[in-house]
Amino acid sequence: MLLALAALTTLGLGLGLLLGTAARLLKVEAEPITAELEAMLPGSQCGQCGFPGCAGAAAALADGRAPVTLCPPGGRDLAQRLAERLGVSVDLSGMADAGPRIAAVDESICIGCTRCFKVCPTDAIVGAVKQIHAVIRDACTGCSKCVDICPTESLHLIPIPVTPQTWAWPKPAHTPVLAKPVLADAGCH
């Protein structure tokens, strides 16, 4: 009896000591994740998330101060990748996602005030004083800064136009024969 108790106690203490030593000696420094998160963010520093630029947002994400759904230009896809990277589960079905969008100028009411291209974080709007401005589609991130500042509301966001080069097959409908079309109800209205 005593022997058994002693043996088990010794075993427990010995193993505990071993584990403790191992934890201290073989400690793996946690990789600073902030830089990696920042690389995943769009990088347009648009500030829509409420943090000062993408670096600030990445720091907030790493500390858990911000939800993965914080970035409107990144959309649902980015939220999903952030959730994967951070190892959090998140319900994205509620996240409104109109897909990636870009700005477009309504040429009939643009007055050529130049305000929009002064705020554009990627220099995606070109023009000059009293000239109609135009958006370079490949450079626009859809951050909506220009939309907010336009005095005549001639700027608005549109979905990126689909061309045969960018068109892709939609996801196939999932299979089970449900008595109640649960998914359709949730998705359509």
Partner: peptide, 8 residues
């Protein structure tokens, strides 16, 4: 499970 039994 809320599925149509007959077809299955």
């Amino acid at each position: 499970r809320g599925q149509h039994a007959l077809p299955r």
